[in-house]
Computed example of a mutant assay.
Amino acid sequence: MTTSQQQIQELLTEMDTLFTDFYSWLAGQYDPASGGFYYAQSSFEIENFIPDIESTAQALNILARSGLSNSLPEPMKQEIVTFFQKKQDPVTGYFYDADPNMRKDEVMVMRGLGYSTGSLRRLGSAPQYPLPHESQARPDYLKTPETYVAWLQDVDLRNSWRGCDFMGTPNHHIAKMEEAERKQFIAAGQAYFASIQDPETGFWGEGNRYIRISGTFKLSAFYTHFEVPLPNVERIYETILQCLREDEARDMCWIRNPIDLLGTFGHVLTIPQEELAEIIQITIANMRKLLRADGGFSREIHQSPPAPNVAQVKEGEFYPYMPIPVPIGKGRIEGDMNAGTQALLIREFCHKLAGVEHQPLHPLTDTFIQTIQAHY
């Protein structure tokens, strides 16, 4: 084992120490009465509020990544199934939280659909009513590849993060098309995205480097979903490395997204071991800044945002498609589910980049099961 490989192994061990109290925090977010997981401790204090779709689905993702899915008590599994089934609108087929503002944000609506159907499938269950793609026509802008590209051209990319996320909303419709038609839409999207990619950085849209990395991460879903090669991967890597070295990561998304991009497309790169060690070291330092006394992680460096569908915007930054906030916490310095699921993803992708088999955090995970079993 080389010096760099030894250093990487030591860094991965150091990263594990950040999760010492994480599973105690996670168990404390579960609400047996609703079958859902709360976003943060302060969420319990919001009057007439029950857990939300995203936080509950993210908790299930954490449990799966932690090797705990098969250890959940059967009554708990049924409670969670019922939680998601009650969220489905029998008329539209979509899954909604109680806050009516969620329905006004297309990105949140599509996430709610994906999170809910995926969670029910993971639990061996299914929605109670037909899903939107089974009962509703596709949007008018997807009539032809040309109308699709025209719609993409109108997307505001002055904030890469939000704009690229918005450009990905048609992906689920395209995936449902017949193969011949789907190929035409994929080719049209691929050509358009290539035409607007910055050849110097490999990024799309505008904003600071972390915002552009986050936008590129969002847009990369098109490439992974449709198995299309991501262009200019080498330039993306070089710009990510510069950003990690020079810029402040003040959001867990900004810590996760570059690692996720490298983990997803790293197979087409040759990352020097000394640079990988540096990347992991910087990542650990950034994660430590967001680790909280309750054992969880905050989304943002100064707080857990009260409405995670709205990014905290610094003066001088632009954020298009700003939805009306959907509050699910009180904005305290505390752990939140969004940051927690991203922290574990970071751990997994760092292992992948290092060529080390990813294993759940036993025996720390035992704490979760022991706490949950006390409910039953």
Rank of each mutant, 00 (worst) to 15 (best):
M1Y: 12
S4M: 11
L11M: 04
D16T: 13
D16Q: 13
T20L: 15
T20D: 15
D21H: 14
D31I: 00
G35Q: 03
Y39C: 07
F44V: 06
I46W: 05
I46Y: 08
S55T: 03
L60A: 00
L60W: 00
A64M: 11
Q78C: 05
Q78A: 08
F84S: 03
P90H: 15
V91N: 15
P100M: 07
N101S: 10
M102K: 12
V109C: 07
L113I: 10
T117R: 05
L120Y: 01
S125I: 00
Q128D: 09
Q128G: 06
P132K: 10
P132W: 02
D140R: 05
Q153A: 06
M167T: 10
T169D: 12
T169K: 13
T169S: 14
A175R: 11
M177S: 14
E179A: 15
R182H: 14
F185T: 11
I196D: 00
P199W: 01
E206N: 04
H225Y: 12
P229C: 04
N232V: 00
E246S: 11
R250V: 14
W254P: 01
I271M: 04
P272T: 08
Q273F: 04
E275P: 01
E275L: 04
A285E: 13
D294H: 10
H302V: 15
P305I: 00
P308V: 07
N309T: 15
N309R: 13
V310T: 14
Q312R: 15
V313Q: 15
K314A: 15
E317Q: 15
Y321K: 08
G335M: 02
D336E: 07
D336A: 05
N338S: 02
Q342K: 01
E348M: 09
A354L: 02
E357S: 12
H362F: 06
T365W: 00
F368P: 00
